[in-house]
Simulated assay, not measured.
Amino acid sequence: MRRFWLLIMVIVLQVSCNSQTEKINGISFVGGRDIVDASHIRPVLDINANWACLMPFGFMRTIDAPQITFDVERQWWGERKVGVETTAKLFQDKGVKVMVKPQIWVWRGEFTGTIQMNNEEDWRAFEKHYTDFILSYAKLAETLNAEMFCIGTELHETVKARPAFWRALIKKVRKVYKGKLTYAENWDTFDNVPFWNELDYIGVDAYFPLSEEKTPTIESLKTGWQKHKAIIKEVSQKVDRPVLFTEYGYRSVDYAGSKPWDSSRANSKVNLEAQTNGLQALYSEFWNEDWFAGGFVWKWFDYHDRAGGSNNSRFTPQNKPAEILIREHYKAH
């Protein structure tokens, strides 16, 4: 009998350990202009990713224009329903789970966090258009049996101004989609979202400033994480939800840890070590925390053979030392 109970305890401990280490090891798969096939999925499998984020887009002319245009012929193939459906099935056929994450692009790349209407009439029009946009892709996600759906990305001013709309939207989404839900808020405003407890994950686009060093060391980056990590953990405990980095990553440039959100070409001095150190510090700080669910690295292109490379200063880790790091880290977790 004693041996029996010892065996049971070993099994319980193994299950417990496994549950703590099964992270969302994800990539943000860019929907491009070309049709993808199994050959475009293979490089994602090679880095041991177990999740892929697919991002259809809707477009606004200005930050105060209510109209959202989506799923039209002039969009790239990967940004439309046909692209999301095809790509999702390709990933699922290989055992990779899928998050569908519809996003808005404002003309000229204005920050979506500043979207705000000028009057009540425009707010109501925007809410109708946004609801149509989100429910359209939520229904597609349900049809695809996608494991997760994201109801929005970096829309802080709309969240602050119209919290009741967002709570109503969550209920509408739950009626047509049965999987897990999250919302992706920017690193500097995620702690002000009032509806985290109505979702399954706290979604954070994790571009936190960490270090002013030209080539930040892993130790300096880990030190820089401490104040942010404390707040992240506090929010997780307060609303009793795990944290998911809906986006994370670094450009391969000098000062990569200073303003990780900066996607401009102002600083394009290639620094592959800075990118790799940034990722290593993030993995060291978060992937072993039981309140942390994992994340989606930003970003992965379908044309792997010509993406990234040693002369590339952008976010993608493809064909850089960062890709090797991700492969080994995802394999271990």
Rank of each mutant, 00 (worst) to 15 (best):
W298T: 05
A322L: 02
A293F: 05
K180R: 13
E79Q: 15
T112M: 09
M148K: 07
I324T: 14
S19D: 12
V235A: 08
K94V: 08
F91M: 08
S310C: 05
D305V: 08
K214D: 02
E127D: 10
V239G: 03
Y130V: 00
L7Q: 08
Y201P: 02
T276M: 09
I63N: 14
D240A: 12
C17N: 11
E147M: 04
R2A: 15
S220C: 10
V239S: 00
T215G: 11
T143E: 15
S16Q: 15
F286N: 00
K101G: 02
R42T: 09
Y303T: 14
R3M: 09
T189I: 13
V204D: 04
V44P: 04
I170Y: 00
D205T: 12
A146P: 07
D302I: 07
Q103L: 12
F133Y: 10
I202H: 01
P209L: 10
K238P: 08
V36H: 01
Q75N: 05
F149C: 00
I27T: 04
A161M: 12
K81E: 15
F57Y: 12
M9A: 15
Q67A: 14
P216C: 06
K269P: 05
W5P: 06
W298G: 04
P216S: 03
G249R: 03
Y250M: 13
Y255L: 02
R174T: 09
G109E: 01
H40P: 07
G295H: 02
E219A: 15
I104P: 04
I232F: 06
A138F: 05
M148G: 07
K222R: 14
Y255K: 11
E85R: 13
P321G: 02
I170H: 02
W291F: 03
I202Y: 00
F4G: 06
K175S: 07
P66T: 06
K178A: 15
Y177E: 04
I8F: 10
N48L: 06
M1V: 12
K222W: 01
T69M: 14
P216I: 00
N311W: 10
P194Q: 00
K227R: 09
V239T: 11
T69R: 13
K81V: 07
T158W: 07
Y303Q: 13
L181I: 08
F149A: 06
Q75Y: 07
A38H: 10
A293Y: 01
E289S: 11
G308S: 09
A281H: 01
T316V: 07
V204A: 01
K222Q: 15
E219C: 13
F195V: 03
G113W: 03
L13E: 14
G294Y: 00
L181M: 01
L90C: 08
K178L: 02
V30A: 09
D37C: 08
I115K: 04
Q116M: 14
W123V: 06
R241M: 05
L181G: 03
P43R: 03
I11V: 15
L140K: 09
L45C: 09
M1D: 10
K214T: 11
F165P: 03
H228E: 06
K238Q: 12
V193S: 01
C150G: 03
S236Q: 00
K175M: 11
E328Q: 12
T223F: 06
D37S: 15
N186I: 11
F133R: 06
Q226W: 04
P43A: 03
A65H: 12
T246K: 04
A184W: 00
